[in-house]
Simulated scan of single mutants.
Amino acid sequence: MPPRPSSKPKVLIVLHQETSSPGRVGHMLLEEGFDLDIRRPPLGDSLPETLEGHAGAVVFGGPMSANDEDEFVRRETNWLNVPLKENRPFLGICLGAQMLANHLGGKVEGHGEGLVFRRVLFRSPAETYPNQAFRYGDNAWGIQFHGELTRLMMQRWVVRGAHRFELPGAQPGRDHLGGRLIWDMHLKRWLSEFLSLIFGKPTEG
């Protein structure tokens, strides 16, 4: 017999590489009782025309830029009208936040004051990337930092993307790992509370 469809509410998860993972965000959503509907638009996956069947959506990051001319970048950016029009819970992380900013008519830049948002929630002490999180309306959120990283994911990033940590204004990889040991417990607690704020507690249908 085919498996019975799950009655758990599902969250749309948008990833941008074949090996990408929703990381700690995915783990926490599963622990809270959500199912994950994972789509990878760069690999040909479509995005739903409505989020009526979803509890919300999370668009993650990737090596590309929200200003790139790739078809899937334009398609995803335009698709953000779905959660905004339906007022569904939405979280954009890094690339996802930049797409949201572009969709709303903001400007995404690598340096300077950069992103200017309706409601900035977090600022970095570094002048290069001052705006780290914003909120639009009731249910749309964007964060520029990577709270979804598990310790293993961060270690892989530091090793495989070592050249990125040598760019101007970048924090050295060893400092990322050292800071993670100090702040990980606090970050995990914050992320759990943040996801609960956005998606609430699931109710099975």
Rank of each mutant, 00 (worst) to 15 (best):
Q171V: 12
A140W: 05
G92F: 12
R160T: 09
L167N: 02
P125G: 04
I38K: 15
L15V: 11
F134R: 04
R156Y: 05
L95H: 12
P9F: 07
S65K: 12
V73A: 06
H176P: 00
V159G: 00
H163C: 03
Q144S: 01
K8A: 08
G33Q: 05
F117T: 14
G56M: 00
T150Y: 07
E18S: 14
V159K: 09
F34P: 05
M28N: 02
T19N: 14
I182Q: 11
V120W: 00
W190T: 07
G96I: 15
R4C: 01
P41M: 15
G179D: 08
K188L: 13
F90K: 05
M28Y: 12
A162E: 15
L100V: 10
R39T: 11
P22T: 01
A170I: 09
G53Q: 09
L187N: 14
H186R: 08
A140R: 02
K10P: 01
V116I: 14
A170G: 03
Y129M: 02
P41Q: 10
N81D: 15
S20R: 07
E166K: 13
E193L: 14
G23N: 11
E127A: 13
E127H: 05
L149C: 04
N139A: 08
H111G: 09
G112T: 11
L152I: 05
P41L: 04
L149N: 09
P9E: 05
L12S: 06
D175H: 13
H176M: 03
L104D: 06
E148A: 01
E31G: 04
A101N: 07
R174G: 00
E204L: 11
E18P: 01
S124Y: 06
F194E: 10
K201Y: 13
I143Y: 04
E76W: 05
P63G: 04
T150L: 01
R164D: 03
E49L: 14
I198C: 03
G62P: 06
V82F: 03
G178A: 14
Y129H: 14
S7W: 04
G137F: 11
R123Q: 14
E113S: 13
H27G: 01
L197G: 02
D37H: 09
G23K: 10
I182T: 15
P3C: 01
G26D: 01
G147H: 10
M153G: 05
A101C: 13
I38N: 01
R74W: 10
H111N: 14
E49V: 14
L47E: 13
W157T: 03
G26F: 06
L12H: 10
G205K: 10
G106C: 02
A97K: 07
G23M: 07
L149V: 01
V108E: 02
R164V: 02
I198A: 05
R174T: 10
L152A: 13
L104G: 04
K8L: 02
